[in-house]
Design a protein around this nucleic acid. Structure first.
Ligand SMILES: [Mn+2]
Ligand SMILES: [Mn+2]
Ligand SMILES: [Zn+2]
Ligand SMILES: [Zn+2]
Lengths: 138, 138
DNA sequence: CTCCTGATGAAAATCGTTTTCATTATAGGG
DNA sequence: CCCTATAATGAAAACGATTTTCATCAGGAG
């Protein structure tokens, strides 16, 4: 599981390994859907009942700094976090259960060239996100 | 300008035409970049000094209901609004000045078919947004 | 084991947004 | 053109999420 790797990464960057951090990391690393700070709090308290919501925020902040998690933007809100993609990948989200799946292999260079020419912009970056129904939810 | 059309649309949906609404609509309709409620408030107060921030929120809410404006998600935040695209278009944003330009003609069907096959998802919708530098900001 | 310092949780502060409410002003009917 | 019903307004209070403050605790180097 990536939880151990995340804890190791935190440690390597000079952060201490605490019970609270373990509980938060365990939950976020194991989730296949994006979780809000409050959801993480509720789930992590099962393992560590005197966890504070503040610590959830602080831990998520550090995990994001280290690029271990990323914020997920959705029609319903933009406060949820998910284990980060490795390399250049995009998200596919189930509209029913939230299941998140990364994919790669989009080749949009031709599109970018056309748009750049038509608009005069220099294209530097892009966001692509797909929404649908996962196998379980169809 | 689209401001007149927006005011007309509001009226047709049973909303009254007020000074406050005019001031808000004028600013948002004329902007080529996405504006936050507070930015709209500051700009619109030039024309209508006793405008309340609450009315900015309420007017934006109605304009969004009528699909005249849309929320714009950006790395720095997701509270800004922009005149809505007509039809299926995507956004191109200048990372320096915020200038927003819509484009169309993306053909991602092939990609969606591949992803659907690989993942088992049924693809229902997609978000695509490009970031770069506009002609003035290069 | 001890000590230093980073980390913690409770509480308070803060920020953006929404609700409440008394007052004002739009728009339709006389 | 004036009246009136009621939608709309802005100030203030309430609210929910996030951040800051601070006294206390605990990780881990020595
Ligand atoms: Mn890509
Ligand atoms: Mn498209
Ligand atoms: Zn699903
Ligand atoms: Zn620009």
């Amino acid at each position: 599981m990536s939880a151990e790797l995340w804890l190791q990464a935190l440690q390597e960057h000079g952060y201490r390994l605490t019970e609270s951090r373990r509980a938060v990391v365990e939950i976020v690393a194991a989730s296949s859907r994006a979780l809000t700070p409050l959801e993480v709090f509720d789930l992590a308290r099962a393992a560590h009942s005197d966890l504070g919501l503040v610590t959830v925020y602080r831990t998520l902040e550090k995990l994001e700094e280290l690029h271990l998690i990323q914020r997920v933007h959705q029609p319903g809100g933009c406060q949820a976090f998910l284990a980060a993609s490795q390399g250049h990948q995009h998200l596919l989200l189930c509209q029913h259960c939230g299941q998140a799946t990364f994919f790669e292999g989009d080749n949009l260079d031709q599109l970018f060239a056309t748009i750049a020419q038509k608009t005069g912009y220099v294209i530097k970056d892009h966001w692509l996100q797909l929404f649908g129904l996962c196998q379980n939810c169809q």
